[in-house]
Design a binder for these strands. Structure first.
Lengths: 343, 343
DNA sequence: CTGAAAGCGCTTACAG
DNA sequence: CTGAAAGCGCTTACAG
C-alpha cells in the first residue's frame, strides 16, 4: 500500500495544498464542486494525512493519555478492561487516540513526560486517592485533566464520579428496613476516595437509625475474591456475627458468598448479601443462585462519559463545569431477606 | 511550566541545533565536554523534545498499537487489564508508547487508519481466530505485526503463544492417571485458536489412552463465571456425569466450582477440577478451598514479552525468527483426586 | 474562492 | 568535532 501525501494529491488535482487541505478539513470557503473533486480523489488514492505532521502544525496531539500502573498492586484491576473500552469508544467519536503510559517510576514523571513531549492533549486520572499528589502535580502542568472519581483538592478539576456514598447509604438503609442490625462492610482500600465515600454511606445510614458501626464489621483492602472470602469468614465467625454483608466489588462479593456457604450457611436466607456491580460480563450477579442484590453502575459507560468530558474541555469548555456525580441503581434481587431469628 | 525547545536550548548554549540534537541522542562524534554541558542544560531547562516533530523528522511513530474491541463480546475480557499492563511495561523499556484504538467498525479499518496515518510503528493483534482475516489484511499493510496467540496463516508472522495444546493434554493425562475416565472440558469459544488448541490437547490425551471424547462432555463459549456454572451443571446432571472438569479460564473455573457445590457435591473429592489460570490477582485459585489445581501462565508476562518482540522487529530482527511457544506450568493442588467409586 | 509561503520543531546528509 | 541548510508533511495567516 503505497501512501500518497498532500503534495502528491494536490498535484494530481491541479490544486494547491492549501485548497486541498481546506476542502478535506471542511472549511466553508471552498467551492462545493472543488470540494467534491478533492474528496473523490482523496478516497480514490486512500489519502490519510500524516498524523505527526498534522500534530506538529496544529499543536494538538489528537490523543488523550491514561497513566496505568504496571507494577501491579490494588489498581491492576480487571475492571480497567471495561473502563478502557468505554474511553476508547468515546474518544473515537472525536477521532482521538488513547495513549496508555506506564507509571513504572511515578505517575508525576509519566504525566510530565507526556505533557512536555506534547504527546497528549488531556489526561485521564484513574483510581484517585483522597489526598492525591497527582492532581496537585497536574495543576502545575498545563494540561486538561479529567478525574474518574474524586479527590480532595481545592483546584477546580473536572471529574466523573458515581454517587458511592448515596449508593452504600441506600443499600445499608434497605438492609436496616429489612430488619438487619449488624451489617458488615467489605470495602476497597481506604486510600481510594470511592472507598471512603462508601464507608461514609454505610456509617451515615447506621447512625441515622441509631445503630453502632462496630469496627469488627468494617473491613477494607484489595477488592479480590480472596479478601472478600477472608473478611466475610472472619466476620461470620465473630461471637456476634453480621446478618448481612455489603461488598465493594463483584470479586469480593463472590468471595463473601463462598465464605457464607463454606460455613454451612445459605446466601440470602441465612446471611443477606449486597455487592457493588460495575457491570462486567465475566461475572454477573444476576446469574448467581440466589441472584445477588446489587448497587449497579456501568464502569464502561463511565469511560464513555469521561471521554466526552475530555472532548468538551478540549473544545473550550470550562473544566469546572464538568463535575458530575451520577446516581447508582439499587437492584433488589434474591440475596436480601429479613434476618433469621437467632437460634 | 514553560517549555523550551531545541532552538532556544541551543541558542542558550551557544551551539547549533545539530550539535545539541546529536549530544542528546548519544551520537559518538560529540566532544565529551560538550555533551556534558548540553545534558546539564537540558536537565536544567527540563527540555523534552516535541514528540510530533521528532516523529515527523524520523518517520518513526514511537508507539505501538493495540486494537481493542469496544463493542463488548467475548473478547472484552478482564484479562486484558493484565495483558496491557505487561505490554506497556515492556514498551516503556524502549520509550515506546502504547496506542489503544477502537474497532468500532472493523479491525481492518482501524489498522489501516493507524498505519496510514503513521501513528504507530507496529501492531499487536490480540485474540486471534483460527481463520483470522486481520492477519491477512495486515500483510497488505506495511506494518510489523506481533500476534498474541496464533492463527492459521501461511504468512510468516511473529507470534507469542503459550502451549495451550500441551497444557490441556498434560492436565487431561494427569486426570486419567488419577483414574478418571469421564473428563469434561469447558472451553472458550472455538473461533479462537487457543480454544481449538486446548480442545486438541484434551482430545489427544483421551485418544492416547483409548478413551472416547463424548460430545456431551465438551462445551465452549464465553469464558465467564456464568457459562462455567451452566455447562458444569449440565454435564453433572447427565446420566453418566463426568468425574472431573477442565476449564479454560479462572472465571469458568469458579463457575464450575459453584455448580459442583450447588449439586451437593464437593470439589476435589466428589468432582475433580482443573482450571487455566492467567495469573490475575482478583481471583487466585490457590486461595480457593480446596486450592484449585491449574495450568498456569502469566498473561502479564506474555504482554511484556510481546513488547520485547515488537522491539526486536523494529530493530531490524526477522519477524519469522520470533515465533515463540512458551510452556505452561501444571500446578497440582487439592482439587484433583482419584474419582470416587460409583455409589 | 484559491494559492504562495512561512512555520510547527525536530533529524540528518553534507561540508568543513 | 561542529554547523548551515534541507526536509519531514501538514496548517494557516495573508494576499489576491
Amino acid at each position: 500500500v503505497s501512501t500518497v501525501n498532500l503534495e502528491q494529491l494536490s498535484r494530481h488535482l491541479g490544486l494547491s495544498k492549501t485548497t486541498v487541505s481546506r476542502a478535506l478539513n471542511g472549511f466553508p470557503e471552498v467551492n462545493e464542486e472543488t470540494r467534491r473533486r478533492v474528496q473523490e480523489a482523496a478516497r480514490r488514492f486512500d489519502y490519510t494525512p500524516n498524523a505527526s505532521a498534522r500534530r506538529l502544525a496544529t499543536g494538538r496531539a489528537g490523543a488523550i493519555g491514561i497513566v496505568y500502573p504496571t507494577a501491579g498492586g490494588p489498581m491492576l484491576d480487571p475492571l480497567f478492561a471495561d473502563f478502557f473500552s468505554g474511553v476508547i469508544e468515546g474518544a473515537a467519536e472525536d477521532d482521538t487516540d488513547v495513549l496508555l503510559s506506564s507509571t513504572y517510576t511515578s505517575a508525576e514523571i509519566a504525566y510530565r513526560r507526556l505533557a512536555k513531549a506534547k504527546s497528549i492533549d488531556a489526561l485521564v486520572v484513574t483510581g484517585p486517592q483522597v489526598e492525591d499528589v497527582r492532581v496537585r502535580a497536574l495543576s502545575h502542568i498545563d494540561l486538561p485533566v479529567v478525574v474518574h472519581g474524586r479527590t480532595t483538592s481545592s483546584i477546580p478539576y473536572a471529574f466523573y464520579d458515581i454517587d458511592n456514598e448515596g449508593a452504600f447509604r441506600s443499600a445499608t438503609e434497605m438492609l436496616i428496613r429489612l430488619g438487619h442490625r449488624r451489617i458488615g462492610l467489605i470495602n476497597g482500600d481506604l486510600v481510594f476516595t470511592f472507598a471512603v465515600h462508601r464507608s461514609a454511606g454505610w456509617h451515615a445510614a447506621l447512625a441515622e437509625h441509631g445503630l453502632a458501626a462496630p469496627p469488627e464489621l468494617e473491613a477494607s483492602g484489595a477488592m479480590t475474591e480472596e479478601v472478600g472470602w477472608r473478611e466475610a469468614t472472619r466476620m461470620l465467625r465473630h461471637a456476634d456475627p453480621p446478618t448481612a454483608l455489603l461488598c465493594s466489588s463483584i470479586f469480593s462479593t463472590i468471595g463473601a458468598a463462598r465464605a457464607i456457604r463454606d460455613l454451612g450457611l445459605r446466601v440470602g436466607t441465612d446471611v443477606s448479601l449486597v455487592g457493588h456491580d460495575d457491570g462486567i460480563q465475566a461475572i454477573r450477579p444476576e446469574a448467581q443462585r440466589p441472584a445477588i442484590t446489587t448497587t449497579h453502575s456501568s464502569i464502561r459507560a463511565g469511560g464513555v462519559r469521561v471521554a466526552e468530558i475530555v472532548a468538551g474541555i478540549l473544545r473550550g469548555g470550562d473544566p469546572a463545569s464538568f463535575r458530575e456525580i451520577h446516581p447508582v441503581d439499587l437492584i433488589f434481587r434474591d440475596s436480601t431477606h429479613p434476618p433469621r431469628r437467632r437460634t
